[in-house]
């Protein structure tokens, strides 16, 4: 009997997901033994035309990592959706936009300006921005069109499963692959998260948790946290309480706040939930103050939290309720 077919694709992402997959160690040999790789640009030479040539539904399992940032990403998302029986949004970028999604905090024009004009090492005399279409002596060159808004994979095509994480932890990937290989039935598709926990990171976090009373916030460089104690209590904006478990609370264990890479729990807006939680435990504005004093005291504490949008939506901005910021005149 023919082996099931396997594909992995890399859209707007850093490549960490691919490395994480290889990080499963010698189990990668099981993957090779169990699957027939039919598309995996990162490790083997396949052309898009190869995929186009496959019949619809030919690919049994397709791991799609990376956000939808440009027209090529979107085209491949549609193509792979059509050709795949099971399409998995693999990693935070495909699931919720992740770091590429932070482009939604600004505009393409501003991004371009930063990279091609304002950057100190750029040769200003050339002053050339990449153009979708360029004429060269050999003919015309087209590059994909950069979209104004970064999207998650499920905002472009229906997704069967999600494996969250930036990147997904190797042991979680291994467990999912092992399950698929051994024929354990997966839950009904429809965008379900697999390869992760069902509660927040705090459950896996061994740090001691007490009642919280925050009087100011610290950025990671401003504070050497007390070991063994919940980082949030100490004023570090640890996203653990609003982030799905599955990573084993790796970061908080070594004194680094959770940044939220496993994304929100089911159906939530990770940033807004964390914002609500963290503002709720700010100890300022007691009942003995008058209205103006209360407002002032509360604002003073909140002001110590730098960049709320970037902090709360570091990974999930493109998949949040608002998805992106609003600019006065789009495109400027």
């Amino acid at each position: 009997m023919a082996k099931p077919t396997f594909a992995m694709y890399w859209a707007a992402s850093c490549g960490g997901c691919e490395i994480s997959l290889l990080n499963i160690g010698e189990k990668i040999l099981d993957v090779d033994a169990a699957f027939q790789v039919v598309f995996w640009p990162c490790v083997a030479d396949f052309k898009y035309s190869d995929v186009e040539g496959y019949p619809d539904g030919y690919i049994d399992l397709c791991l799609f990592n990376g956000a939808i940032r440009n027209s090529e990403n979107e085209e491949l998302a549609h193509l792979l959706r059509r050709k795949s029986k099971t399409l998995v949004a693999f990693g935070s970028c495909a699931y919720e936009g992740c770091a590429p999604g932070l482009a939604n905090l600004t505009t393409n024009a501003a991004t371009m300006r930063t990279i091609y004009t304002d950057c100190l090492t750029t040769d200003e005399t050339r002053d050339r921005l990449p153009q979708p279409l360029s004429m060269v002596p050999e003919g015309e060159i087209r590059i994909p069109v950069l979209y104004e808004t970064v999207r998650a994979l499920d905002q472009v095509v229906p997704v069967d499963y999600i494996i969250p994480g930036c990147p997904p932890e190797a042991h979680q990937i291994a467990a999912v692959i092992q399950a698929v290989i051994s024929g354990v039935p997966l839950p009904a598709p429809g965008g379900k998260v697999i390869g992760a926990g069902t509660v927040a990171v705090c459950e896996e976090c061994p740090l001691a948790k007490n009642v919280k009373q925050i009087t100011r916030f610290y950025r990671p460089y401003e504070l050497v946290p007390e070991p063994g104690i919940c980082l949030l209590e100490q004023g570090l904006v640890c996203m653990g309480p609003a982030t799905r478990s599955g990573c084993g609370a790796l970061c908080p264990q070594v004194g680094m706040r959770c940044e939220g890479c496993y994304g929100p729990l089911d159906g939530q807006d990770q940033g807004a939930r964390m914002l609500s939680a963290i503002a709720s435990v700010v100890a300022a504005g007691g009942p003995d103050q008058d209205e103006a004093e209360q407002e002032h005291a509360i604002a003073a504490v909140m002001d110590t939290l730098a960049d709320p949008a970037g902090t709360f939506y570091r990974f999930s901005l493109a998949h949040s309720l608002l998805r992106r910021v609003r600019v006065a005149e789009p495109g400027t």
Binding site: V199, C202, E203, K209, V211, K212, Q213, C230, A277
Partner: peptide, 26 residues
């Protein structure tokens, strides 16, 4: 209880002290 991670954000929010934390089950 199955969804609670034991983060204890809620513990001091109740003006009626209705929220208790179970150390054993976290």
């Amino acid at each position: 209880a199955d969804s609670c991670s034991g983060c204890r954000i809620c513990n001091n929010l109740c003006p009626y002290h209705a929220i208790v934390y179970h150390e054993d089950r976290r």
